[in-house]
Nucleic acid binder design. Sequence first.
DNA 1: CCCACATGAGACATCTTTGTCTCATCCAAG
DNA 2: CTTGGATGAGACAAAGATGTCTCATGTGGG
Lengths: 192, 192
Amino acid sequence: MSHVGYGCLMAVDREHVLRSAAALLTRKSTATMDEVAKAAGISRATLHRQFAGRDALVRALEALGIAECEAALDRARLDEGPAGEAVRRLIRELEPATGLLAFLYSENQLFEGEEQNAGWARIDARVTAVFRRGQDGGEFRIDLSPAWLTEALYGLLAAGAWSVLDGKVARNDFTPMIAELLLGGALRREEP
Amino acid sequence: MSHVGYGCLMAVDREHVLRSAAALLTRKSTATMDEVAKAAGISRATLHRQFAGRDALVRALEALGIAECEAALDRARLDEGPAGEAVRRLIRELEPATGLLAFLYSENQLFEGEEQNAGWARIDARVTAVFRRGQDGGEFRIDLSPAWLTEALYGLLAAGAWSVLDGKVARNDFTPMIAELLLGGALRREEP
DNA sequence: CCCACATGAGACATCTTTGTCTCATCCAAG
DNA sequence: CTTGGATGAGACAAAGATGTCTCATGTGGG
């Protein structure tokens, strides 16, 4: 039945195109629609049939990024166990999506004061909540606001993603180096 | 004498234009040459007389950013005293330039693998050196590479600059919140 | 006063990207 | 085999940004 085939093919193709676009735009955020199409192995016409324009493509990527963030948040079970371990789990679960997230992170900087997507607000709230939980439980220091800890996490994720892309650090170190720095800082701890 | 007036006026105008462009591009990295000119209070023709094109303007901004970084590095006297205090001084001295630096930081992500400016390499080396010094002196932990600590500092500076621009955190908190997070991390320390 | 020179305003061509369109091709279902 | 639908290739105009040009203006120094 053409309907079934149509729906399925569109779905997988759309997924593949989005993945390719994310991978390309992560490296070259100013890539043209033509380059995006070539990277996905399709023609510009087909790309334009699936995404009405560049805006639509970016918005679809944003939706994908939000979905992956929320999935990672679910998997990380932020409300279980020590907050520090929860943050560690979150970073680990977020890792496969950090390329896309780094692109969206820098992209959103130029949406001046426009409409703040409700999806990001929800994600912000969930991330902020785990930092607040850690503070309330006496696990995290209270002189750094949860809002700043959240922004710092985003910044470190982007910095880590770009460092890996540039080959400045090993991909395997991604999760621990972000978690260790965010939680423990650079200063050496006195071992008891 | 026209030569003196010419030279002096060009200098201050150039400085003013660069500052305005930096302030604008920090908020809207895709601003047009026309917008940059308007922001500086000059016409597009005059802007184009001072900077051959957009590339030249961005390169001039990069040179300005590099110069400010090196000046901040000089003022911070990274090789004096405890490395942690040196990093704190560096963040404080860098603070006025972080808007420009955040713009250049995200801008450089799309210079794919192009020529790495020698200026940034020198700055990287100096920043990396202070982290290495801290490790050698037993002050910093050694399981986080100096290269990663350097990249993390850049990421936190950019995240802090954008957070201040978005009004998510107070400008006065900029230096301490970055320094405290980078050095001490989010975990609460056991007070002796 | 006069003049050199920087400036502002705007016209203009060019380039790139985008969005839309047409048409030939291919493939898979019927 | 036939045919509907998706695709690729390419032409096309529109829009935006850029780079270049000319000309009028204003100002400061001689």
